[in-house]
Design a protein around this nucleic acid. Sequence first.
RNA 1: GGCCCUAUCGUCUAAUGGUUAGGACAACAGGUUUUCAAUCUGUUAAUCAGAGUUCGAUUCUCUGUAGGGCUACCA
Length: 449
Amino acid sequence: MKIITRFAPSPTGKLHIGSARTALFNYLFTRHAGGTYLLRIEDTDKERSTAESEKNILDGLKWFGIDFDNPEKIMRQSERTSIYKKHIEKLIADGHAFISKETPVKEGGREEVIRFKNPNKKISFDDMIRGTIEFDTTELGDFVIAKSLEEPIFHLTNVVDDIEMGITHIIRGEDHISNTPRQILIWEAIGAPRAIYAHIPLILATDRSKLSKRHGAVSIVEYAEKGYLPEALMNYLAMLGWNPGIDKEVFSKEELVELFDITKVQKGGAIFNEEKLKWINKEHIKMAPRAEIIERIKAYFPPGKELPKNSELFFADLVERISIFSDVKELVGKGELNYFFEAPTYDAKSLVWKKDTPENSKVHLLAVLAKLENISESASIPETANDFSVESVKNAIWPYAEEKGKGNVLWPLRFALSGQDKSPDPFTLASILGKEESLLRIKNAISLL
RNA sequence: GGCCCUAUCGUCUAAUGGUUAGGACAACAGGUUUUCAAUCUGUUAAUCAGAGUUCGAUUCUCUGUAGGGCUACCA
């Protein structure tokens, strides 16, 4: 049997992280099985649907890395009114629905609506994740399926389209479980073979309530803006409620498609944990091509920053310090890495290592200065533009540092170069800054002592 | 309130009618040539409760408890 699935968002807001995961599970299930994946926009509610939301959802899906098999002909329910009308008329003719006289309870309520004639029976269906679920539909009453012939509502349009599109598997959020029996009733009244359902658990906030705006970032674009890699977010969202049963946790999109199994999806809701997302993002940063990562880092640089001399080494160090790309902004802006862009200022006291004296520190810096001056810019490795490499700087200083006490020598040097309590090691620092700038900073430090 | 769904370390989860209940994130401790970062190693930490079935239940059944969803002329 050819598998056909769909993702059917309603354009009433930005692409929510939970919707994105529903889209993802559908995607993984369908691509794994070699089926057809369709996109449908459920915009029957004219009051709440906006073109802006639809664009946000489409852009979000694209960024996320989910593609559909009907990109040129996305189905929009607002364009299918006549089709729904035909079905409603047929349901009425067959005695499955009727025009009902109403007493409006709220403002704007209708004098008459179209209700489904409930057969009041027991419905059961086999959910791919939860097993058999049973309902008695009696309590549903004769529910409304359309406000008028031209204004169908969700339950009707959803079922009609799923039937017309030949949907074989419906994968959606757990919040739709209660909607399922009444949709099955409509499905049976129209007289089509029923689809197979899978209701995936919800994503929860830290307090176990449904994740919503008041809990912070909930839309996909916010994660894009924060500088998450789409494949990392996909990896995390896939693992939230599902896992392949092996210890590995970091996967590419292709691996997820290969391994995905809807029947192994968790039944209970899962709390969204951004710490773990960050960790996964870092893992994906490690796997990605370095040049690509550097391009993304540069995009988060404040304008007008002049890179230090050995920028390659600088980026290598920076990559290790970030989990998400917006971290760059904090580190580079006016943050703790600012000394790479302008000479630091500091007082003499900070230059001295714990129990050492200013006098000694001055002696050490003088000695280090002499040794670094001796490193020829055109020494050893000819193909390296900057011979002031981590290795040569380290080799020049190391014996002296061992002799005089590592802290005594290395702390003043590191502080002279960075002006910070925390920084990369002094060899790396010197190499990144280059010979000229390094010597300048050391001389300045000496003058303070 | 009614109906429905769910329940393993703080979090995401693995496992089986019989295991020292495993892994990851986080936390903590230590190593890693001064500090930070990164990295490595280790430690702490869980089967919601009570009955029942069984030689044996985290696993199966029931009850309770807790959480979530639905209960629209929204989707």
